[in-house]
């Protein structure tokens, strides 16, 4: 890896109706379910960026997310991305005006790829993250793109879709392995490597992190420049500082904590 690259450690918060979904285990949080308080904590801990994934089903809940973003922007001074329910330029505008730095598109982009170019044309490619959920399909010898949290298969090849998304103006790929998500077995390195070699924009590896060694592998073996994790941080198993120490010990440049 080029020595000028500095890898990013990115905690991800799943939010529904304005509350963090997975329980968190920071002992001294006033309100462990408040995404804003959790985000501020990660900023203080030395996280490089944050991702909020809004998994709210209802449109009322979506308005709640705008409020979360707005309150986060008052307290959190590192970049953050908002995903979930971004279907058109107006949705992106609302989140960016509220204080998000990037929006991620997933289902809407598969259904109508122009949403990527529409948002990029208005706000710049740097703020469009294409989130891709992929699962290995042995019969077709490829990773297939899935929607709706892995429930709905598409006919898209994940590597080809990543290339297309970048050509449409996505500035970053957030790549989640549906095979590994929740397993704690580590990233799907082959998938991560296939996508990171195919595109010239940053790839964030996601899905499967069970220990800090896994984060390092995402960068050294997978070619990702960002590593995303939820439970190992939320449950208090590890701090951001510990993650960066391990990555650093593997020769990865990181922004030191503190």
């Amino acid at each position: 890896m080029n020595s000028d690259i500095v890898a990013r450690v990115i905690p991800c918060l799943d939010v529904t109706n304005g509350r963090v979904v997975k329980g968190v285990n920071f002992v001294d949080l006033r309100d462990a379910g408040d995404p804003v308080e959790l985000a501020a904590r990660y900023d203080m801990q030395g996280a490089d960026e944050l991702v909020f994934l809004d998994i709210t089903a209802s449109s009322d809940g979506r308005e709640t997310m705008v409020d979360v973003v707005s309150r986060t922007a008052e307290q959190v001074f590192i970049p953050f991305t908002v995903g979930g329910g971004i279907r058109e330029v107006a949705d992106a505008r609302k989140m960016l005006r509220a204080g998000a730095d990037k929006v991620s598109v997933n289902t809407a982009a598969v259904q109508r790829p122009e949403v990527i170019s529409d948002i990029a044309a208005e706000f710049g490619a740097q703020c469009v993250v294409c989130a891709i959920d992929a699962k290995w399909d042995a019969s077709q010898n490829r990773w297939t793109v899935y929607l709706h949290g892995g429930r709905t298969a598409t006919d898209l090849d994940a590597v080809q879709w990543a290339e297309r998304a970048v050509s449409l103006g996505a500035g970053e790929i957030l790549l989640t392995s549906m095979d590994r998500d929740g397993t704690r077995d580590g990233f799907d390195i082959a998938l991560t490597k296939a996508v990171s070699s195919a595109v010239n924009v940053p790839v964030i590896a996601s899905g499967g992190v069970g220990n800090l060694q896994h984060l390092a592998e995402g960068v050294t073996e997978g070619g990702a420049t960002g590593v995303l994790a939820a439970s190992i941080f939320h449950f208090g198993d590890h701090t951001i500082a510990e993650a960066k120490d391990v990555m650093s010990a593997h020769g990865i440049r990181v922004r030191p904590v503190g």
């Binding site: 690259i5 500095v6 890898a7 990013r8 010239n200 940053p202 922004r255």
Partner: peptide, 10 residues
Amino acid sequence: SVQRPQMQWN
């Protein structure tokens, strides 16, 4: 010769 954009801390 490097990834563009530079999207990172430096």
